[in-house]
Nucleic acid binder design. Structure first.
Length: 690
RNA sequence: GGGCCCGUAGCUCAGCGGUGAGAGCAGGGGACUCAUAAUCCCUUGGUCGGGGGUUCGAAUCCCUCCGGGCCUACCA
């Protein structure tokens, strides 16, 4: 009987691009969903961007655009990246949608009605310059542990001594947003008394196979052994999110509306397709499966079931939790070039490679998986090109333009054996043990290659009397190939499509693996997948490598550690701004009067997003007023006193805020990527630059 | 500090109480030539992190130590 399955992946935060770490989850989920669809189950894949919270508010502010515009831009990038990896959502929405707001209100009313919401005073650090409350992550200062006193530590714990503290305990706390000294402020927050659902959560997490065993153990030992603390679900303005209807000035915390986004996004899909939301979310027949990373375990395994239970929605049938991705055995690193963005990967490599590699490495456990770049190359080349695709490559050509044998020849049980393997392969897929599924498929591929080796069609070809035998051998080879492609089609949809064309029979159902194909016309063979060139992978790493230099802001420019400039510099800058092809003469250059100048004053310009008003001294009483578009990269206070290079004879220009009497030199693309030029020590205001 | 998980051949992993511990890649030797230097056959290699225990029997269960990863709630 066909199952009804609703599947989600965690909502990616709309504060950065999709990278290969994210893709572990989306590829894993997409494979599982495609498998379910192939098996004939009714299955939909729902996801959305997670768009609220302080971090996004700050990022948008930094770019000088409204949050809505910021998240829209990110949305488009995410959708494009996912599509590039053949990740096929039935709906990809946003938590910042009317549908989501509506469902949030449904949950909120239910929590209120159940009497679970209470109000408490919360004292938090507040940034008086930026005008926002500061999460721990946004406060830095000196570790309060007397034995440590390490500088530059986050508000929650010290990474030098491991001491945990509250941000208010930090010595010399500083807001990482504005650099201002935070002050303590009190506000009323709304809390959900999740402890009142303790018994339910104990029962739900410990029985019924909803969680992997290690996760159930973890929750029991860590959270359920003591009373659950009240969950703070509101944030005072300013906050980018949804205002709480019965508590003006307060907003739902991003983690309140994010999981609700699963339902909000489903509602969008329902409205579009004429389906009923209750049929999917308030229906015991529907299985809800969440795929998430281990870092967000407690939100999904405690808060979320508690909310669903209270509001009367379906509880998850299963929460599938995966580990993190490491690259070459280490955390992804920008300076090593292993922090690889989806977009960068796609510029050089076929998405099928990564889909297969992840599939081969994934199990149903919570373990981290490692992307070993050398192994990646050898696995794709050996398993996919050498073993699987090679089956078609070495037989299809003998039958080009002809038909497969009219009845399936005797293959001494090979097809039947692989058909029987289908059972174990399907079970492995169902349990998310994709690695096992791949191993079984590859083993069948080995047997098929052995068969072809023994049957030696290349010898049959030479003998005109053996042409029908040749056709039989190739019919067997192509059928064994097709069978494996059907098994692989959740992982490699492109290969499945190509195979469908080759044999004139599109892959659409798992059952096709159980019956040999006969009589079909064989289309001319074209390469289905090419080997991974090592250089391509090297190019990806090279392009991903970034020199970790803090951009112009408060912390100053720290040289990157452990990175030699020769190996670290890419030509990304030149690609973005190619060298000019026209030349100038020395006389042309001499017309520009470049001078060293000292910044006497720097101030913000009311109403201007990008401009700072600078007062520069060329020595003595020679001063100039210059408006510079560097506000997003520099704080006024950091500029006063430093030396810059001024174009002293640039024609004055009237601007909306006053007249600019020159221009200062800087490198970079603009916005926060602005790096002022400065002379080495010893230069004096008024010196000409030659 | 507390907790969860992991530690099996050079590498990536399977096996998770019962025939002499396995696969792929890498290494060595050979065959073949249809195929994207693909494929096929043979082969080198491990006191299953250390120690103790339970058992007729342990890589597999328990304890302990060592090493690694992660989590620890107003972090997104």
């Amino acid at each position: 009987m066909s199952r009804k399955i609703l599947v989600t992946s965690a909502l990616p935060y709309a504060n950065g691009p999709i990278h290969i770490g994210h893709l572990v989850e989306y590829i894993q989920t997409d494979i599982w969903v495609r498998f379910q669809k192939l098996r004939g189950n009714r299955c939909i894949y729902i996801c959305a961007d997670d768009t609220h919270g302080t971090a996004i508010m700050i990022s948008a502010r930094r770019e000088g655009i409204p949050e809505e515009e910021f998240i829209q831009r990110m949305y488009e990038a995410h959708v494009r990246d996912f599509a590039g990896f053949d990740i096929e959502f039935d709906n990809y929405g946003s938590t910042h949608s009317p549908e989501n707001r509506e469902i949030c209100e449904v949950f909120w009313r239910a929590l209120r009605q159940a009497g679970l919401v209470i109000e408490k005073e919360v004292t938090q650090l507040f940034d008086p310059v930026a005008g926002v409350f500061l999460a721990d992550r946004f406060v830095k200062g000196t570790c309060p542990n007397p034995a440590c006193h390490a500088p530059d530590q986050y508000g929650d714990s010290c990474d030098r001594c491991g001491h945990t503290h509250s941000p208010a305990e930090l010595i010399h706390p500083v807001s990482t947003i504005s650099g201002a000294k935070p002050e303590l402020r009190t506000a009323r927050h709304l809390f959900v008394q999740i402890e009142r659902l303790h018994d339910f959560l104990e029962e739900w997490t410990q029985t019924g196979d909803h969680l992997q065993p290690e996760i159930a153990n973890y929750l029991k030992a860590h959270f359920l052994s003591e009373p659950l603390r009240d969950w703070d679900v509101s944030r005072p303005a300013p906050y980018f999110g949804f205002e709480i209807p019965d508590s003006p000035g307060n907003y739902w915390y991003v983690w309140f509306d994010a999981p609700i986004g699963y339902i909000g996004s489903t509602k969008q899909w329902c409205d579009r397709t004429g389906e009923s939301l209750d049929d999917w979310w308030r229906n015991p027949e529907t299985e809800v499966h969440h795929f998430i990373g281990k870092d967000i375990t407690y939100f999904h395994c405690l808060f979320w079931p508690a909310m669903l239970k209270t509001a009367g929605f379906n509880l998850p049938r299963k929460i599938h939790i995966h580990g993190f991705l490491t690259v070459n055995g280490e955390k992804m690193s920008k300076s090593k070039g292993t922090f690889i963005k989806a977009e960068t990967y796609l510029r050089h490599l076929d998405p099928s490679y990564l889909r297969y590699y992840y599939a081969a490495k994934l199990s149903s456990r919570v373990e981290d998986i490692d992307l070993n770049l050398e192994e990646f190359v050898s696995k794709v080349n050996t398993d996919l090109v050498g073993n699987i695709v090679n089956l078609a490559s070495r037989t299809a050509r003998f039958l080009e333009g002809q038909n497969l044998s009219p009845t399936y020849p005797d293959d001494s049980g090979l097809f039947a054996q692989a058909a029987a393997d289908g059972q174990a392969i399907a079970e492995a897929y169902e349990k998310c043990d994709f690695g096992k599924a791949m191993r079984l498929i590859l083993a069948a591929g080995d047997r098929a290659n052995q068969f072809i080796e023994r049957a030696a069609p290349w010898n049959l070809k030479k003998d005109p009397a053996k042409q029908s035998q040749l056709r039989d051998v190739c019919t067997i080879g192509l059928n064994l190939f097709r069978q494996l492609v059907i098994y692989l089609s959740p992982v490699l949809p492109r290969l499945a499509a190509q195979t469908g064309k080759l044999l004139n029979d599109p892959v659409s159902s798992w059952d096709q693996s159980q019956v040999p194909l006969v009589g079909n016309r064989v289309a001319p063979f074209e390469h289905m997948m090419t080997r991974v060139p090592k250089e391509k992978l090297a190019a990806v790493v090279e392009e991903s490598r970034e020199v970790e230099v803090a951009s112009g802001g408060g912390e100053g420019n720290r040289p990157a550690e452990g990175v030699s400039p020769e190996t670290a510099d890419t030509d990304e800058t030149l690609q973005r701004e190619p060298l000019l092809t026209s030349t100038v003469t020395i006389d042309d250059f001499a017309k520009i009067d470049l001078r060293v100048a000292r910044v006497l004053a720097a101030e913000e310009v009311p109403g201007a997003d990008k401009l700072l008003k600078l007062t520069l001294s060329l020595g003595g009483n020679h001063t100039r007023t210059v408006f510079a578009g560097i506000k997003k990269a520099y704080k006024p206070g950091d500029l006063v006193g430093r030396l810059v290079i001024l174009v002293a004879n640039l024609a004055p220009r009237k601007m909306r805020f006053g007249t600019s009497e020159g221009m200062i030199l800087a490198a970079g693309w603009g916005d926060d990527q602005v790096f002022l030029l400065a002379p080495d020590q010893g230069a004096k205001p008024g010196h000409r630059v030659h």
